[in-house]
Design a protein around this nucleic acid. Structure first.
Length: 335
RNA sequence: GGCGCCAUAGCCAAGUGGUAAGGCAGAGGACUGCAAAUCCUUUAUUCUCCAGUUCAAAUCUGGAUGGCGCCU
C-alpha cells in the first residue's frame, strides 16, 4: 500500500527542466531555444536579474533575445520583480518562483529553470529547502554585528556553540554571516541543521553547461567587454543618480560594485574592468564548485556543441531527455 | 668607459649568520532565509649564477650576468 502511494506520487510529479552552469556559458539562449522546442516557459534563477534596471551588468536577456529562432516569443518569469532599493531573499524567490512554476504547469506548459544562482535553484527544486514565512530580523542581525565588532567574533561563535552545537559544528569560526544566521535560527528554536538531500517535488532534469576553464575565461572576458560597449558605465551612473545607495544589496552585485568606483572617479575604467573580469572568474569558479556537487546534473560539453549554436545545444537536450528522465527517477531513489 | 644601488614564487614583497613572513594572482573546497554574498584550504627542498669564509649563508667576501640611476 505504502509502495503504491509512493508510485502514485511519482506519477503525479510535474516535469521541471533546468539549465544551469557558470556565468557566460550561454544558458539564456539555450533555454529560449529549448522552450520553443518543447513548449516551455523560462523561469529565471538569478539573484540579480530580479532587480529592475540592472540589465547590462546582470547579463539580463533582452526582449529581442527572448524570441527563438523559429520566431516564437518565449515568456520569462522572475525578471524585474523588485526595485533595486529593495532587499530580495531566497525565501521570496522560493515563493514567487514556485508560484510561477505552478502557473506554468496549470497552463500545460513546461517550466525551464535557467540561471546561475545555485542556492535559488536548490530552494525551488529540493524538498528539503521548504522555507517558512519569516521576516528577517535586521535589528537582531545589526545588534549581533555590533557585538562581534566590540567583543570579537569568537564570542558570538562560542555563544552559538553553547546554544546550538550542531549548527555551530557546520560553520567556520570566521564566517560571521553564517554565525549570525545560526544565532538567529537558534533564537527561533531551530537548533539543528536541515539534513540535505536531493529529493525533488518535480520530475526533474537538470542540464549543466560545461566549458573548459580557458574557454570559459575567455568568454567571460568577452562578455565583460561587451557589457562596457553596451553602456554598463552609464547604467551604473543612472542607478546612482536615481538615488540607489552603493550599499544596497542590488549594487553589491558583480558588475556594479566594480564599476561604482570608476563612476565616482576613484579609478580608471581599465582598472575597473580588470577587477570585474577577475571577480567574475572567481564567481564562475564558485558556481562550478557548487553545481559539481549535484549528482543529478547532466553536463553538456559546450565547446563541442557551441559550434552548432544554442539551437544545437537545445536539440541535444531534447534528444537525451527521455533517457535521462528515467535516470533521474533512479537517482532520487538511491539518494 | 667610471661610480653607486638592486637581484627572493607568475606579480608585489619581508627577511641583514641559525634552516624562506605576508599580500595578490593561480588551484581546490564549503555553502539551507544577504548567495553575483560569505567563508576555508593550498602554492619556493630554496633566494640570478660561480667560487670562497663559516659548524651553519638568501644574509658575509670575490667574481660573472642582468636591471636601474648618476657621472664622463
Amino acid at each position: 500500500m505504502a509502495g503504491k502511494v509512493g508510485n502514485m506520487e511519482n506519477e503525479e510529479k510535474k516535469p521541471l527542466l533546468a539549465i544551469v552552469g557558470p556565468t557566460a556559458t550561454g544558458k539564456s539562449a539555450v533555454a529560449v531555444e529549448l522552450a520553443s522546442m518543447i513548449g516551455g516557459e523560462v523561469v529565471s534563477a538569478d539573484s540579480v536579474q530580479v532587480y529592475r534596471g540592472l540589465d547590462i551588468g546582470s547579463g539580463k536577456i533582452s526582449k529581442d533575445e527572448m524570441v527563438a529562432s523559429d520566431g516564437e516569443r518565449i515568456r520569462h518569469h522572475l525578471l524585474d520583480v523588485v526595485s533595486p532599493t529593495e532587499h530580495y531573499s531566497i525565501a521570496r524567490y522560493q515563493e514567487e518562483a514556485g508560484a510561477a512554476v505552478a502557473d506554468i504547469h496549470r497552463r500545460g506548459k513546461i517550466p525551464i529553470l535557467c540561471g546561475g544562482s545555485g542556492l535559488y535553484i536548490h530552494s525551488l527544486v529540493n524538498v528539503s529547502y521548504r522555507l517558512g514565512k519569516e521576516e528577517r530580523n535586521t535589528a537582531f542581525r545589526d545588534a549581533l554585528k555590533g557585538e562581534a565588532r566590540k567583543n570579537g567574533l569568537q564570542t558570538l561563535y562560542q555563544r552559538l556553540q553553547r546554544e546550538a552545537p550542531s549548527l555551530a559544528a557546520k560553520i567556520h569560526p570566521n564566517d560571521e554571516r553564517r554565525i549570525i544566521r545560526g544565532l538567529e535560527k537558534s533564537e527561533k528554536g531551530e537548533k539543528t541543521a536541515a539534513v540535505p538531500n536531493w529529493d525533488s517535488p518535480f520530475s526533474l532534469a537538470i542540464f549543466g553547461l560545461y566549458l573548459p576553464r580557458p574557454a570559459l575565461y575567455s568568454r567571460i572576458e568577452g562578455r565583460v567587454d561587451k557589457m562596457i560597449e553596451l553602456g554598463l558605465v552609464a547604467e551604473v551612473r543612472r542607478l546612482l543618480e536615481e538615488g540607489i545607495v552603493p550599499e544596497a544589496q542590488s549594487l553589491t552585485a558583480l558588475g556594479y560594485k566594480e564599476i561604482i568606483p570608476h563612476v565616482r572617479g576613484e579609478c580608471d575604467l581599465k582598472e575597473a574592468v580588470r577587477t570585474l573580469k577577475q571577480n567574475t572568474r572567481h564567481f564562475a569558479k564558485r558556481q562550478i564548485t557548487w553545481f559539481m556537487r549535484d549528482p543529478r546534473i547532466v553536463w553538456l560539453q559546450m565547446d563541442r556543441l557551441l559550434a552548432a549554436g544554442s539551437g544545437g545545444v537545445a536539440e541535444e537536450i531534447t534528444r537525451i531527455l527521455p533517457q535521462y528522465r528515467q535516470e533521474i527517477l533512479l537517482t532520487q531513489r538511491i539518494l
